[in-house]
Amino acid sequence: MTNEDIVQAIKDIIITIAPDEEVAGLKLDVSLRDQIELDSMDFLDIVMELRKRYGVNVPEEDYKELASLQSCVDYLAPHLADKELVAH
């Protein structure tokens, strides 16, 4: 997956979890929680969807790596290198 795909993958997950949020204009390097309303349960859901869709297991101590779209890309790139963007 390219970095753009990873961003899209996260946006797709956010759309599933929080369908009322506007994901199109999300800034890459600003924390997600500063841009849209995501609480700790939502982050758990993001972690779950990553596991379901891409088989990636994010341990609890790494949750902070998912703070922004850019940090998601940095953290997930090695795990998603050989995966395809899941259509949703």
């Binding site: 349960m41 758990l44 859901d45 972690v47 779950m48 596991r51 379901k52 297991n57 609890e60």
Partner: peptide, 16 residues
């Protein structure tokens, strides 16, 4: 929902 989310996050699931 809360307890389920908490335990599911800790569980190693089988194939979805």
């Amino acid at each position: 929902a809360g307890v389920a989310a908490f335990v599911a996050a800790g569980a190693q699931g089988q194939e979805a």
